[in-house]
């Protein structure tokens, strides 16, 4: 069986779902961030797959590289926020950080 676009998409979907699941369920902020990384990487897999099979060509690559750079920046900022949260609350449990509660 020749590996095709479908396989990549399935892998990507599984990876996305796992990431989403991590974002929603995990209580530790770092874990939430890791889930976020998974979601981003699932998207990257899609871009590369479409570049190879779907005719996106070079644009898919460029988009993937952008995502990677953005992910790095995002991670830096997010970690900084997490550090601040820790300094203020002495924990990083996202469930308890609900000061914006209406």
């Amino acid at each position: 069986m020749e590996i095709g676009l479908t396989h990549y998409l399935v892998i990507s979907a599984i990876l996305f779902s796992l990431g989403l699941y991590g974002i929603i369920t995990r209580k530790h902020a770092i874990m939430v961030l890791m889930g976020l990384e998974l979601v981003l990487n699932a998207a990257n897999i899609n871009f590369i797959a479409f570049a190879r099979y779907g005719g996106m060509n070079i644009e898919g690559h460029i988009a993937a590289i952008f995502v990677i750079i953005l992910a790095a920046a995002e991670a830096a900022i997010a970690l900084a926020i997490v550090l601040n949260i820790y300094q203020n609350f002495r924990h990083v449990n996202v469930d308890e950080v609900d000061n914006l509660k209406g």
């Binding site: 929603i24 996202v94 469930d95 609900d98 000061n99 914006l100 509660k101 209406g102």
Partner: peptide
């Protein structure tokens, strides 16, 4: 309506989803 505003980021994510 303010009750919807839980302050918990994860619940927002669920709403988005």
């Amino acid at each position: 309506l303010r009750k919807l505003q839980t302050g918990q980021i994860q619940s927002y994510v669920v709403f988005v989803l």
